[in-house]
Amino acid sequence: MKTLYIFIIFIIVAVAQLYIPAQMILDQEQVLETGTAYKFRTQPIDPSDPFRGKYITLNYELDAFATKDSDWKRNDEVFVYLKKDELGFAKIDKLSKHKLESGNDYVIAKVTYYNSYSEILRFNYNFDRFYMNEDKAYDAKVAHREAQRDSSSNTTYAVVYISNGNAVLDNVLINDIPISKFVE
């Protein structure tokens, strides 16, 4: 009888162990299906994680916006409302401390600091990790640097799907070629 109880509790634990990764997948899949794709200009650098493998950290160019509101603390949440330019690149429409009623897409970023002299707020997005094959992560950084040297405009960008404030980083492209193909 006692074994049965232990087994039942174990089943619950096992379901939780399956549920968490499954839920992670479903959340992401939902955003990828229903969300809108935005392009974010970016610069990659390559650190690594002991369990999840090598990744490139993406420094987005869209990480600051002018605002008169100076009441920001580090790590405050900021709702960044987005719009697209004619090429599909993301542009900031407006910032807010709360969720707005308007129907625009938004992401939640974290404040790094507010420059009260130039009245510019700087922030970080949480979709800044792109996991890559361990042989390609370093090459990706180099490839980006070279691509940037070749042409005057920065051609590296991330494709991010956004739905209801959730963002899923789908791919990183250099000159419209996926970065993992580009470095091959």
Binding site: M24, I25, F127, D128, Y131, V168, L169
Partner: peptide, 12 residues
Amino acid sequence: SIALVSQIYNIP
């Protein structure tokens, strides 16, 4: 399993 799912979807 959590690591691989994070890796596939670039979960922050």
